[in-house]
Design a protein around this nucleic acid. Structure first.
Lengths: 215, 215, 215, 215
DNA sequence: AATGAATGAGTTTTCATTCAT
DNA sequence: CATGAATGAAAACTCATTCAT
């Protein structure tokens, strides 16, 4: 897992202060991006929401896009930090199910943030994008590990590519719960969604094939 | 399936001309949106790409957002028109597989368009969004029908909610092929992707469970 | 009295048609100018209100300003035509009063038109303005004649400058009834206004001086 | 007398600076409006005439119309401030004459400004117009007081409506000196104009009736 | 004569960024 | 470090006018 960060220019020296100001800034920006998107949010609004002046904002970033980068970066970090509670090592179907369930819960709780990042990340410059994409790779990597362990322990039997794809599916289904909420959350509770998706993952529709069809 | 369109203001009367100019406009706009996104594309660029003056552009729309709406609307229409070749009625696993495969192929061919629509649709106003979302409903509806027929014919056995969710999964996996191409298309060819996803859909990971684990 | 008209270019030959089209055009334009002023009215709106296409509009004028000129010109002509019913020759106080009353009635009936011309005439180019101002001179000239006859007949005794000023006062008070309607028409009916103004003209406030004050 | 102002949005906080910049802005705008009218003046020209950039202009106003409002408001304030030197309380014919004379002198000196406001005020939105009209009411109110005092002191004898109308007449005659300068200022000096108008106000034409006619 | 599609210069307004205090 | 006034490039949109049909 990569840990590299793209440095964001600041003219302030005090590391603690930078941390503090950026936290305020990100919190404000997420709220704004959620409501109006990145492009429709002005730097003045971000400064105001963060509780300081436009001049001060620019002491901690160089361009508006830096804010977006910091926001995306921060969201991924939060998600990753939370996912670190998953026990990746066990390698049983039970732990796999638990891991998926935990991931879906995190996605549910961080819906807004994920939605923001999801929709706005594409506005990042060619410069910043790789850093963010790397985080995605890291995260699907965690899901891959979760599955791979089951393979390693002999509970599942499949190749690398297969593991990769399943991890991607789970990852996207987690986001889907948030960004297609207008469709999904009308039909399912989170728990139902988790159960159905897990079930489909494990059994496919085959669990629902007519007996006769199986003969 | 709804067919209603949100009317887009034009001061031109000749219906044929409107059709022609809008087609030119949409073609140009898709290219631009693909490269730089909706917000970073200017109306002048759209006009130029379409081959007419800024004044003429505004004879056929009222606001920049109208272009986005027309683009989204047109893409969905194209997708839907192509999907109409799927035989929804058969209700066999074979026809289901064929349908999915066909859908994935369409998504592959229209990758750019789908990506654009996928990323920019959220910039539509509260006013226009419902029309576009309705198209999504229509399209997942087609996939639902495809599955439902299998249930009706007794090939599959599941409830409505279940059918609904599977349709959504397929739908998103189709888009995923495009919008996560940077990850997926490194690992799989389209045909591999289709085969793996179809397989997962039908069997889940259970087809890959170790014999011993099944006992 | 001058009769000169500033020619307005037209590419149409048929004089009757020109007359007809321009009448339609002026009627429509007055309504629009009344509502939104000259600058906020578009040539397209004028054409539409007149009942023909923008192309046709430009067959009968050369620039938008021509419309304004034609409107102003037409309004003055209408006013003048109506004022020709006044008997300018009598030279009695009675005929003076009648003339003023008649003028005020005309101003009341043509309030909207006068208001338009009054507010928009300043938008005429240096080129067209003199023609319109000449019409004002003509009209105050009529009022001057009305008064001068009283002087000539020995009913009043005053110099030319004096006559000139009184004519101007009357002229402006007539317009005032229209353009300050929001103040005046709350307090007076037209007849009251006429009576009070006429009375003031003839007697000044002296008719209202306390007897004692006069001694 | 109302003193309420319609607030005009500014993103600048320093009150003194606002005052200063707006003064510069108004000075520039009056010159421009005088030459070309409100509609033909661009915001860029206003900014330039005021001595700052277009961006800075918009730090002190929200829309172009705000400039017009500020101009009108400022002109009225100037006029009112100057008229406050009139002694309204005396209630003698002499003080009435003096007051009128003073008002006419103010109008003469502020001719350009009054002309601008007079011709452009109608371009104000329904929103801002009442504030400006109120100022007119205030000003005619001052003239009314001037006359009413004479009535109160028993020097004149007339009803409220009568007082109201006379105030309006004087008010408009003051403006008339400016907006009909092309006619009036050819024939009269300011002093002549004042004397004639005052005389007419007090005596009407009756002072000019032939003796014989009076018998 | 009539039409209306095409044009593009011109307008208002916004907003990321800078820099003097 | 913090502030917020100043800047001007750039954007969306309008509309008088033309001209081919």
């Amino acid at each position: 897992m990569e840990r590299t960060k793209r440095p964001v220019h600041t003219s302030v020296k005090d590391e603690q202060l930078i941390e503090k100001r950026r936290t305020e800034m990100i919190r404000g920006a997420v709220q704004l991006f959620k409501q109006k998107g990145f492009h429709r949010t002005t730097t003045r609004e971000i400064a105001k929401a963060a509780g300081f002046s436009i001049g001060t904002l620019y002491e901690y970033i160089r361009t508006k896009e830096d804010v977006l980068y910091l926001v995306c970066d921060s969201i991924y970090d939060q998600v990753k930090r939370r996912l670190e509670h998953i026990d990746l090592e066990q390698g049983t179907l039970e732990s796999l199910k638990l891991g998926i369930s935990f991931y879906f819960h995190v996605m549910d709780e961080m819906q807004d943030e994920v939605l923001v990042m999801y929709q706005e990340a594409k506005s990042l410059s060619k410069d910043a994008l790789p850093y963010v994409l790397q985080k995605e790779v890291d995260m699907t990597g965690m899901l891959e590990t979760l599955i791979q362990k089951c393979v390693d322990r002999g509970v599942l039997d499949m190749g690398e590519a297969h593991v990769h794809l399943i991890a991607q599916n789970i990852f996207v289904q987690g986001q889907m719960w948030g960004f297609r909420r207008w469709m999904l959350q009308k039909s399912f509770t989170l728990e139902e969604y988790i159960e159905l998706q897990t079930n489909l993952l494990l059994e496919g529709v085959s669990g629902h094939k007519k007996k006769t069809a199986l003969q």
